[in-house]
């Protein structure tokens, strides 16, 4: 049975249910009340983490690290919601990374963190993360990180990675038209940028949580600070779209008439 060393990279993003508003401060663009907004692990990175956990449990001897660059206090808070769901060893980078950060600069900070992981076997390495993030949504950080780590096999929009007994993996990537491209990767190392994957959110397991926190709290305490300065990205404006439409609300119209209007509208060129 193959043994994998899975490094999952994931940033924090505001809880998607929150209302967001951009503001320009002395340090550049950010979100209004950013420190007060509840945060979560980026949803796609969370998919990657859950997939990593599942892969590691199915392949005994495998290990999972979670590498995250975020303000320590926020990361600690998010860990409490996350740590019961999957087993991992935390590698924390104390940095303020958000939607307006530069992908390459974030990748550099993450590369330093990955390179610092003791006991990481590069020949078994699967570098996981989200194919995009809910903040920048660029799909660039992980790819650049892969490049920095010299990983020549990269996959993006991954929904499934099925290991075979010989250590190869069948990988399904999202492509246009709601289809998947199917590839066979003969062996790690490789980079997989995950889409939603196919696993449901795992249940909260208190024992996993206790175990995780034993290593996570010291990791948080020794998190190396990393100052992101923008990486040459200049933002001349950020604004909310003016999107209010003048909605015509149709009440008390018989269903037949509603249906006719809709059919006519569909037929309009």
């Amino acid at each position: 049975m193959p043994v994998f060393h899975v490094v999952v990279c994931g940033g924090l993003v505001p809880d998607p249910l929150q209302t967001l508003e951009p503001v320009q401060g002395p340090a550049g663009w950010g979100l209004k009340n950013e420190s007060m907004l509840p945060a979560i692990l980026d949803p796609w990175a969370a998919s990657a983490l859950f997939e990593a956990d599942s892969l590691a449990r199915a392949n005994p001897g495998s290990r999972v690290w979670l590498v995250s660059a975020a303000p320590k206090a926020k990361l600690q808070q998010v860990l409490m919601a996350l740590a019961q769901k999957a087993a991992f060893e935390l590698v924390a980078v104390d940095a303020q990374a958000g939607g307006f950060s530069d992908a390459a600069e974030c990748a550099s900070a993450l590369a330093a963190a990955v390179n610092s992981i003791a006991g990481l076997d590069r020949s078994r390495l699967l570098l996981f993360g989200g194919w995009e993030s809910a903040s920048r949504g660029a799909g660039a950080t992980l790819a650049i990180l892969g490049e920095m780590l010299g990983i020549s096999e990269q996959f993006q929009g991954v929904d499934q990675a099925s290991p075979k007994p010989d250590g190869s993996l069948e990988i399904l990537e999202r492509v246009e038209g709601g289809r998947h491209q199917v590839s066979l990767l003969s062996a790690p190392p490789a980079l997989l940028g995950w889409a939603t994957g196919s696993l449901p959110e795992p249940p909260n397991n208190p024992q996993v949580g206790m175990l995780n926190m034993r290593s996570a709290m010291p990791a948080l305490q020794k998190a190396a600070p990393s100052r992101l300065t923008g990486g040459g990205l200049a933002l001349s404006s950020v604004e909310l779209p003016s999107q209010r439409r003048d909605t015509r609300v149709v009440k008390d119209m018989p269903e037949d008439q509603v249906a006719r209007e809709i059919v006519e509208w569909i037929a309009e060129k």
Partner: peptide
């Protein structure tokens, strides 16, 4: 920004010591 170009563009930008923005 097709799946094919998105897969490689950021990595190529790193190889070429450039910068990248997407979408």
């Amino acid at each position: 920004a097709t799946s094919r170009l998105q897969r490689v563009l950021a990595a190529v930008s790193a190889r070429c010591r450039g910068a990248v923005d997407t979408h």
